[in-house]
Nucleic acid binder design. Sequence first.
RNA 1: GGGGGUGUAGCUCAAUUGGUUAGAGCGCUGCCCUGUCACGGCAGAGGUUACGGGUUCGAGCCCCGCCACUCCCGCCA
Length: 598
Amino acid sequence: MKRTHHCNELRPAHVGQTVTLSGWVHSRRDLGGVIFIDIRDREGRTQTVFDPSDLPADLFARAEKLRSECVVSVTGKVRGRPDGTNNAKIATGEVEVAVTALEVLNMADVLPFPVDDPEVAAKVNEELRLKYRYLDLRRPEMARNLRLRSKAAIATRQFMDEQGFLEVETPILFKSTPEGAREFLVPNRREPGTFYALPQSPQQFKQILMVGGVERYYQLARCFRDEDQRADRQLEFTQVDIEMSFIEREDIYALIEGLLKRVWKATLNADVPIPFKRLRFEEALNRYGADKPETRFEMQLADFTGEFRSSAFKVFSGAVASGGVVKALNAKGLAGATQGQIETMTEYARSFGAKGLAYIKVENGEWKSPIVKFFNDAEKQALIAKLGIEEGDLILFAADQWLNACEILGKIRLYCAEVLQSQGKLTIDPNRFDFLWVVDFPLLSFDKEQNRWYSSHHPFTAPVAEDVPLLKTEPKKVRGQHYDVVVNGVELGGGSIRIHQPDVQKTIFEDVLQIPPEETKLRFGYMLEAFRHGAPPHGGIALGFDRLCAILSGTPSIRDVIAFPKTAKGVDLMTDAPAPASARQLRELHIKSSDGKS
RNA sequence: GGGGGUGUAGCUCAAUUGGUUAGAGCGCUGCCCUGUCACGGCAGAGGUUACGGGUUCGAGCCCCGCCACUCCCGCCA
């Protein structure tokens, strides 16, 4: 037998038993006469003792040769530690195993980076961690993340099963639907010049499943998007994909609240209060400057459009005159912001097309600002009243079209919070989870360059029933039956009630989105046809499972909750994928590469 | 596609204004050590300063190029 107990199991109650532990050499302390070796497995670690007075010389000699991360199996007797030598840092710290037999299952080369010291290991260059991912995964932090992810997946499946959902797998080899994210194409060997595409999401299949009478579908679905990556975006990722028939928005809210409550309980033993708050899209932008508001701190935006409509400060009154708004934010206690910090904020504003960033520093009872000389008393009083201006505050302004002004200050709000946190002036409890729904999104957005409307979410989103008459007259005012679930400023997922009437869907495609009928037929014909054969009303949602796990694990990067993630350029540093294909493979696939490499 | 950051020993980092032989801790190797758990002590090895150019009497440091990683914008229906 290679193991009788795992390495986080032995307690004083086991004293006297003969046990066998298997695992990795976590650390070795060779005192010359006696050697202590901590054996580590995925559960924890246990100290073993090699005492030469009890051991054959050759066994002791082999123990002397062990080094970090060798794989061993040791047998010995559990005993209590001598007085004063307990180790309170580990769960097995009251006992040790007096070794009588050692089997070296495998030696290990010297490590490229340490895995035993959490503080050092956490700082190791990620490039190195990814190249030697198998070592990285041995670190307790990473092992914990994988375990958390597994627990979250199991809790999801149990909950969805209890709620009567069927897990249905949908194809990975799908058809290109050239709208939305760039897709990965897979050449078809059987017919030159034709391609599959990997799905960006199972969206169309899950709707078809509703037409197929499944009624309640879910899947932990792998999705693929060939877009540039971020800390929270990978080329391939997993979403909890859900679709239900005969429901309204409220049913989805209740389902997801129940699901997230279950997942948080199962993984962190945390109690998530439900129901979640709800914020209208417009309100989220007006108050937090984002459609995924971070609500764990206040610092809300205020509106001064009315107050500055006829201001002597032309930047503000001019913005209002051209249909824009004036918004402001009070970063309490940030009057001491450095020039560099102000510059960073100004860059945020510029990246949204603003010319600059107006601000007021309130220091020594004075308003220090290049613009305050343009303000009259009424304007100043309005600022004081609405923003609660006090000594030490930093006031920041955005004057622009509504969405832009909100988003500029939204970005700056988050940046200010970061700075205030680093200065110890703002504390955000890392164990606090602020869930909320963002609702009442506009169904459509206008693309100025192409002079046409496009779907804010996707073209299958149903309009709010009472807004349907506005579709052809005032598209801007039509609200979609769309909803996003947000936690701590992270968009965890989104979904909608779908259009199930073929005529409404056709109107959206052809009249509103102005996709030519023949193209509609080519791209979505099978869906429209399916909807003509008895499509139930339905709706659904997709949750970003990697993001969910990252939140649970308390890490900002989803790479830390994916066993084998890719770099920003889409490279797997361990396997070196992607790699050139052989000439023979290309020939079979009827592919000619134009880069000259193959 | 664009902007910012990083790259020095196996790992984490330092190196004054451009100035001697590029240092430290950990790790590694050897020796010593019977109660350590960040074991301790002594000694030692280990460097194309990512890479390619340039300026200079002299470059880890300045300039140009390039590569990798990373953060952000664009993009992500």
